[in-house]
């Protein structure tokens, strides 16, 4: 189903371009959600259901809601009136060009587009990808998971401390 791949890839790309060219921040945020949805569809097309669903659940469903919240409470017209300056354009071109160069060199090195990956040969009664990812996370990678958990806890405590400080 190549046709579906091109459809969703185009959706993701169009969303990405929309983020950059829209002057209205709310429109940009929505373009970003469209881009996430396209990406999620691409993951699901690779039979990576969990990754695709998490893409929607975490990014489109939770993070972007907070983004939108903040943007809507900001002063949108002032953003729309802002003019482009030469410095900003030059910096953006430098960053984007550098990134493209890096991406191109990495893709060239690994022969992207030419390497053919064989599909995984799994038995029909193999456990679902959720089970396999869960097993890996809580056996092989149990220590990194613990560290990430502690890190999140520290961040949460830090946020509470920082936001309470002004009240005192």
């Amino acid at each position: 189903m190549n046709f579906l791949f091109y459809l969703f890839a185009a959706t993701a790309l169009a969303g990405g371009i929309g983020v950059v060219i829209n002057r209205n921040p709310v429109s940009s945020a929505f373009a970003m959600i469209v881009s996430f949805l396209g990406l999620a569809a691409l993951f699901i097309q690779l039979d990576a259901y969990l990754v695709g669903i998490l893409q929607i659940l975490v990014y489109a469903g939770a993070i972007m809601v907070l983004f939108l919240f903040i943007i809507m409470l900001l002063d949108v017209p002032s953003e729309e009136r802002r003019r482009l300056t030469f410095g900003a354009l030059a910096a953006a071109a430098a960053v984007a060009g550098g990134f493209l160069l890096l991406l191109g060199s990495v893709l060239r090195k690994h022969g992207a587009g030419r390497a053919i990956l064989e599909p995984l040969d799994l038995p029909a009664d193999a456990p679902s990808d959720v089970h396999r990812i869960g097993d890996l996370l809580f056996s092989t990678y149990w220590f990194p998971i613990q560290i990430v958990g502690v890190l999140l806890l520290v961040a949460t405590v830090g946020v509470v401390v920082l936001s309470k400080r002004e009240l005192r």
């Binding site: 929505f30 259901y49 669903i53 998490l54 489109a60 469903g61 809601v65 939108l68 679902s128 990808d129």
Partner: peptide
Amino acid sequence: DVGPLFVFAIASLSVYGIV
């Protein structure tokens, strides 16, 4: 194989309509 997660993911998108 991710039924409940799918429901929560899509249902979380319905907040955009209201916002």
